[in-house]
């Protein structure tokens, strides 16, 4: 018995998303509640805008952050400037504890491939380190930043061509699994626990 209270189109989408992601129907419904909250925080139009994404992440809608921009861009698969519900669920599915690790590794590779050239280049690594330092209380001299970037490139760039390709990235992550720690959100395994009020109202049984 599927008694989702929204319209038939949304109900169909929920079933479809559950069939092609790591989430159950109940969990996709819980994500719909989260999506509704996020997508109506500034502009109530059924899409998550960049400002709404920033507000949810930083409690500040005008907070600029290179990495949040990259995550937003990857979630916005259609590249139309907003995150739709399907994009939200499919992207979050990669963060599910039971999602394939290869998908998590590939997502981070795309995230760090700032120019989308198919490689993480030395200059991109430096740009990201500087962005991280800029947003945090960490302080490093220019020499120290160069040293960290150069050492990392030496470790990760097995072919020594000055850029990290996807195969090199996979090997590097295998040696340093903590690099994809952010890619697993324990909440997602118990998403219905995170929204108990919703579960009480749900008539769906998986």
């Amino acid at each position: 018995c599927f008694c989702f209270k929204k319209n038939a189109k949304t109900a169909k989408l929920v079933l479809f998303l559950a069939s092609e992601t790591a989430f159950t129907v109940n969990e996709v419904e819980a994500l719909y509640e989260l999506f509704k909250k996020l997508s109506s925080s500034i502009i109530n139009d059924g899409f998550i805008h960049k400002e709404e994404f920033q507000l949810a992440l930083f409690q500040n809608s005008s907070m600029q952050n290179l990495f949040a921009d990259r995550v937003f861009d990857l979630f916005d698969v259609k590249r139309n400037g907003v995150i739709e519900f399907g994009e939200f669920v499919r992207s979050l599915s990669i963060f599910h504890p039971e999602a394939p690790i290869e998908d998590k590794i590939a997502f981070v590779f795309r995230l760090y491939d700032l120019q989308q050239t198919g490689y993480i280049e030395c200059e991109e690594v430096k740009k990201m380190v500087l962005a991280l330092l800029n947003e945090s209380d960490l302080s490093l001299s220019d020499e120290a930043v160069e040293s960290i970037v150069n050492k990392t490139m030496m470790d990760a760039d097995a072919k020594g061509d000055g850029k990290i390709d996807e195969a090199e990235w996979k090997e590097f992550v295998a040696k340093h699994p903590s690099l994809i720690k952010n890619m697993t959100l324990p909440y997602l395994k118990d998403i219905t626990m995170a929204f108990p009020s919703f579960v009480l109202n749900s008539e769906v049984q998986d």
């Binding site: 930083f58 990495f67 960290i148 690099l179």
Partner: peptide, 26 residues
């Protein structure tokens, strides 16, 4: 001060912008 022996990607992964758990905070 960050140790200079740190892996650049370890540093990068500490960005608040990559911490999506904030999306679930009520």
């Amino acid at each position: 001060v960050a140790p200079v022996t740190m892996n650049a990607f370890e540093l990068i992964s500490k960005s608040q912008g990559l911490n999506l758990s904030s999306l679930f905070e009520k």
